[in-house]
């Protein structure tokens, strides 16, 4: 269910859907070969459902979209970046508890 609220970001749509968005956007950088990313996936799905209408939540596959991770100097995944008005306002690397992520999101909604 929750997965329906999760956007799929790409190098092509990143500028429009993330940088120019009117609400905060949480981007989950992940890859198929990254076990911790898969572990974090359901948490991100749950956040998408809980913050519907307040925060746009989406995932970006780093294999398919190399430019954006490079632009933001991503050196490890999972990495979550929170964008507001086109700028990175929060950056979290590695597996996280849902409650800790909620605290971070709550600072910006």
């Amino acid at each position: 269910m929750a997965a329906e609220q999760v956007q799929t970001f790409s190098d092509a749509n990143f500028s429009q859907q993330v940088l120019q968005a009117s609400s905060p956007v949480l981007v989950d950088f992940w890859a198929e070969w990254c076990a911790p990313c898969k572990r974090l996936g359901p948490t991100v799905d749950a956040l998408a459902a809980e913050y519907q209408g307040k925060v746009v939540v989406g995932k970006m596959n780093v294999d398919e979209n190399p430019s954006t991770p490079e632009k933001y100097a991503i050196r490890g995944i999972p990495t979550l970046l929170l964008f507001k008005g086109g700028e990175v306002v929060e950056s979290v690397v590695g597996l996280q508890q849902k409650d800790d992520l909620k605290k971070i999101l709550d600072r910006h909604v």
Partner: peptide, 17 residues
Amino acid sequence: LMGHGVSTCATCDGYFF
């Protein structure tokens, strides 16, 4: 620098190098 060049997981982060 953990996650910004320092890593304990080669399979997770090797791709970025």
